[in-house]
Amino acid sequence: MAKQENSIESAHRAKLRETDWEDLTEAGAYVEIGSGDLYRFPKEALIQGGSPLVTKESHGASRLLQVSTDPYVTTMKARLICAQHNVEPNF
Results as ranks from 00 to 15, higher is better:
Met1Gly: 13
Lys3Pro: 02
Glu5Asp: 08
Glu5Tyr: 11
Asn6Gly: 14
Asn6Met: 15
Ile8Glu: 13
Ile8Ala: 12
Glu9Ser: 14
Glu9Cys: 11
Ser10Lys: 15
Ala11Thr: 07
His12Asn: 12
His12Phe: 08
Arg13Glu: 01
Arg13Thr: 06
Arg13Val: 02
Ala14Cys: 04
Ala14Gln: 11
Leu16Pro: 06
Leu16Val: 06
Leu16Ser: 03
Arg17Ala: 14
Arg17Gly: 05
Arg17Met: 13
Arg17Trp: 07
Thr19Lys: 09
Thr19Trp: 00
Asp20Asn: 04
Trp21Ala: 11
Trp21Lys: 08
Glu22Pro: 00
Asp23Cys: 08
Leu24Ile: 15
Thr25Arg: 15
Thr25Phe: 00
Glu26Ser: 13
Ala27Phe: 11
Gly28Tyr: 12
Gly28Asp: 00
Ala29Trp: 08
Ala29Glu: 04
Ala29His: 06
Tyr30Ile: 13
Tyr30His: 12
Ile33Phe: 01
Gly34Tyr: 01
Gly34Pro: 03
Ser35Pro: 08
Asp37Val: 01
Leu38Asn: 07
Tyr39Gln: 05
Arg40Gln: 07
Arg40Thr: 05
Phe41Ile: 06
Pro42Tyr: 07
Lys43Tyr: 03
Lys43Leu: 13
Lys43Asn: 09
Lys43Glu: 14
Lys43Gly: 08
Glu44Gln: 14
Ala45Cys: 01
Leu46Met: 01
Ile47Arg: 04
Gln48Pro: 06
Gln48Leu: 05
Gln48Arg: 04
Ser51Tyr: 05
Ser51Pro: 11
Ser51Phe: 07
Pro52Glu: 00
Pro52Gln: 00
Leu53Trp: 10
Val54Gln: 08
Thr55Lys: 06
Glu57Gln: 14
Glu57Lys: 14
Glu57Ala: 15
Ser58Pro: 06
Ser58Lys: 02
Gly60Ala: 15
Gly60Tyr: 13
Ala61Phe: 09
Ser62Arg: 15
Ser62Lys: 14
Ser62Gln: 13
Arg63Phe: 12
Arg63Asp: 10
Arg63Val: 12
Arg63Pro: 04
Leu64Ser: 02
Leu64Phe: 02
Leu65Met: 14
Leu65Arg: 13
Gln66Tyr: 13
Gln66Pro: 06
Gln66Gly: 10
Gln66Leu: 14
Val67Lys: 04
Ser68Arg: 02
Ser68Val: 01
Thr69Val: 11
Pro71Arg: 11
Pro71Ser: 11
Tyr72Lys: 15
Tyr72Ser: 15
Val73Thr: 05
Val73Ser: 05
Thr74Gly: 05
Thr74Leu: 10
Thr75Trp: 07
Thr75Met: 12
Thr75Arg: 09
Thr75His: 07
Thr75Pro: 00
Thr75Phe: 10
Met76Tyr: 07
Met76Glu: 11
Met76Leu: 10
Met76Asp: 08
Lys77Asp: 10
Ala78Thr: 03
Arg79Lys: 08
Leu80Phe: 05
Leu80Lys: 07
Leu80Asn: 02
Ile81Asp: 02
Ile81Met: 06
Cys82Glu: 02
Ala83Cys: 07
Gln84Asp: 10
Gln84Cys: 02
Asn86Arg: 15
Val87Lys: 03
Val87Asn: 03
Val87His: 01
Val87Ser: 02
Glu88His: 11
Glu88Tyr: 09
Glu88Val: 13
Pro89Cys: 03
Pro89Asn: 06
Phe91Leu: 07
